[in-house]
């Protein structure tokens, strides 16, 4: 049961969160300019490192905000720092 630091709510149990895999995978700006292979890369291919991984989590049972987290996939050790720099921006 990992203790996940939500940038909005503080550390909470893993069960409150939804996992979103690799962070920073942007949808191609012009999808129609992407080849089928490039589009497939966006849809289906994600990094899968053994070690530190920047990944997305969403605080489903709390603030419902997505945020990025750096975690070691071999040990589940969470590298704090990344989320603290993260802007807590909400478009209003």
């Amino acid at each position: 049961m990992m203790l996940i630091p939500c940038p909005w709510c503080g550390p909470r149990n893993e069960t409150e969160f939804h996992y979103g895999g690799q962070a920073g995978v942007a949808c191609p700006k012009d999808p129609y300019a992407a080849s089928d292979a490039e589009w497939a890369a966006f849809l289906f291919f994600r990094d899968n490192p053994k070690g530190v991984f920047t990944e997305r989590w969403m605080h489903r049972s709390g603030c419902r905000r997505w945020f990025d987290l750096r975690r070691d996939t071999a040990t589940n050790e969470i590298h704090t720092g990344a989320h603290e720099d993260q802007e807590r921006t909400v478009a209003v």
């Binding site: 049961m1 990992m2 893993e14 069960t15 996992y19 899968n48 053994k50 996939t73 071999a74 589940n76």
Partner: peptide, 13 residues
């Protein structure tokens, strides 16, 4: 378990 891991262990819940 929902998250990526190479730890050969999961969460108790």
């Amino acid at each position: 378990d929902a998250y990526n891991s190479y730890g050969q262990r999961g969460a108790f819940h």
